[in-house]
Amino acid sequence: MAAEGNAIDALGQFVLYPALGQVGSAVGFTNSNLYMVFAGVLIVALMVYGMREAAMVPGRMQGLAESAYGFIDDMVVAQVGEEGRRFFPFVFTLFMFILFGNMLGLFPYAFTFTSHITVTFALAATVFVLVTAVAIALHGRKFFGYFMPEGAPMWLAPIIIPVEIVSYLSRPISLSVRLFANMMAGHVMLKVFATFVVMLAGLGTVGPVLSLMPLALNIALVAFEVLVAFLQAYVFAILTCIYLHDAVHLH
């Protein structure tokens, strides 16, 4: 899928294929799903294998598992409060799933399932549905008061209510587009510069020297993408927490 002819095929890495041969093809199991399974298996492995000793003084893997747990636990409690504890497993799953998806995508030949807007939107929609359901379950009809802030003059209602509703409905869009766009842009850049390396290297004697420039850039980009992978997972999780806070406390 690299440079075929002289064209740069930066998008080929996002194409869905059936994975697992005939069986996967029959049930529509794609390469994207394969990496979701990898991510899930790695997360469970970290949490179960890492905690297998359940030692009083943690080793490396246990320390990693515990700090992941503590990181999300602190985030949920800080953002939502003590009553947010029951959403902790959901936020933890969401954060780890996105983080591992982003990180796995950085390996060569790997598929980045978070670079698909449908996948990120599905996750964001899950958050949206959960948040709305929690808000309605906790507050009933008072939930709709959320769209009319207290203390705002009544004559502004025709403006405020539509704005609030639009801003509420745009949450899953901003949530999903942010993650998708970040991951896709990063991977396109990596692919483009990697193609430059190959193309420049084929330019005769000076080519290999010139190709060092995009190579150096790509090395820096990989480091940057590791940061982005973590940051976007964090942003997704903390925004989920903030929405949950709104749902639990209504402003």
Binding site: G28, G40, M47, F97, T118, L123
Partner: peptide, 22 residues
């Protein structure tokens, strides 16, 4: 189908973490 599998995998991961690992 990718989305269907996503929900299946995510759900399985959620229950594995919630009921056993966490």
């Amino acid at each position: 189908t990718t989305l269907l599998w996503l929900f299946l995998i995510f759900g399985a991961l959620y229950f594995a973490l919630k009921s056993y690992a966490l």
